Amino acid sequence: MATPMEWLLVGSHVSLDQLDAAKESTYVDVSSHTKSYSAYAWRLALSAVIATGGIASQSPAVVIGAMLIAPLMSPMVGTQLAIVLGNKRAVWRTILMTWLGVIGAIAISLVIAAMLPVKIDTTTNTEVLARVSPRLVDLIVALASGLMGALAEIREDIPDTITGVAIAASLVPPLCVVGISLYAQDWRSAAGSMLLFLANYCAIEFMGMLVFIALHLDKHFPQQKGLGTRKWRYIFVIACVAVVAMPLTFTSLNIAQSSIKSGQVKEVATQWVQNTNWSVQEVKVQDDVATVYIDGADTTLDDSKFLAMLNDAHISLKGAKVVIIPEFSIGPSGQYANPSPATTQQ
């Protein structure tokens, strides 16, 4: 008879056939080692190549294509299932497969980045920038993804492809950004994207394990190491989530503060260029240094007025600079002129 939690999560009693199918698809049980491992390796390698190409070309559609074939979710769910069932050998197998995949994706993306004729600029590439500043909301998304991944493996009425769409976006692309950033020697971006992956990894493992515990799947399989050993594994995973949540919270607060300051600086800059031919295009605040991008046709700027206005607004900044976006005018003679960049330091 199904428990209330089984009815809530699965809609019925979890059968041994469902459990066996989940174990087979998540590498807890491997019937054909060569076939299973070769398929995993090919999917991983090709998804990394495609994701790196999509990031290099700044094409979300190509990155999505890589998400659809990325295989990392399967061994990750397998780790959750093996821990709950007490299958120590499967625990180590799935962990090894996951982290070999992680190393492989990073290495492949690094090699592809080195082979490209044009270097990927990690400071301007939109696909890179989207994955180097992990936030607390990313952890929340990963928790929901872990729930989806566990349910997709244990329920027959939820297609496995949903797992790939919901999860791989948070796994393979950040790893490819790590490889690209390492090649570009952008250590900050590499660390940020790796933190994003680790946050997703820990959150997915934690949430999926809670689902399998709630379903009492261990009653279908003899305990091999006893509840005490598994309890420490649960504590370890919970600790991982807590540890990763702290830097994500810090990063989220920094992003929120930078966003507020960007709005304040933009308001001041807009007032500064009012009644002139200059216009404010963009304002960025990073590490308490504001960068204001403007364009226009005037030849002079009153830098001291801008600094005075910033001080009067009581915006806490370490520095500020104004970058003029070049505009070229080509005449009949072929001559051109462009305004020289101006920089203002506070």
Rank of each mutant, 00 (worst) to 15 (best):
D295L: 11
G226F: 00
G164Y: 10
Y234R: 02
P75K: 00
N311S: 13
P75D: 03
V323Y: 13
T343H: 09
F206W: 08
I158F: 06
V292H: 07
S12N: 12
D287V: 02
A22I: 05
F221N: 08
E127H: 06
P75S: 03
L85S: 03
A190Y: 10
K119I: 13
Y293N: 08
A269N: 00
W42P: 00
A191S: 12
T52K: 01
L301P: 08
I154P: 09
S32T: 09
G101Y: 03
V265N: 11
V172A: 14
S170G: 13
I180P: 13
G53L: 08
F250Q: 14
G54H: 04
A105C: 03
I95Q: 00
H13T: 05
F250S: 10
T94I: 04
I260K: 14
D160F: 15
L198P: 02
D186Y: 06
L136D: 09
A70T: 05
I255K: 11
K321M: 15
G226C: 01
I50E: 06
N311I: 06
A184M: 06
D138T: 12
S57Q: 14
V132L: 06
I235N: 00
A150D: 11
M194N: 11
S74T: 10
D302M: 02
Q335V: 08
V137A: 12
I294T: 04
G228Q: 09
A191T: 09
L198G: 04
D295H: 14
P247I: 04
I158T: 15
V62D: 06
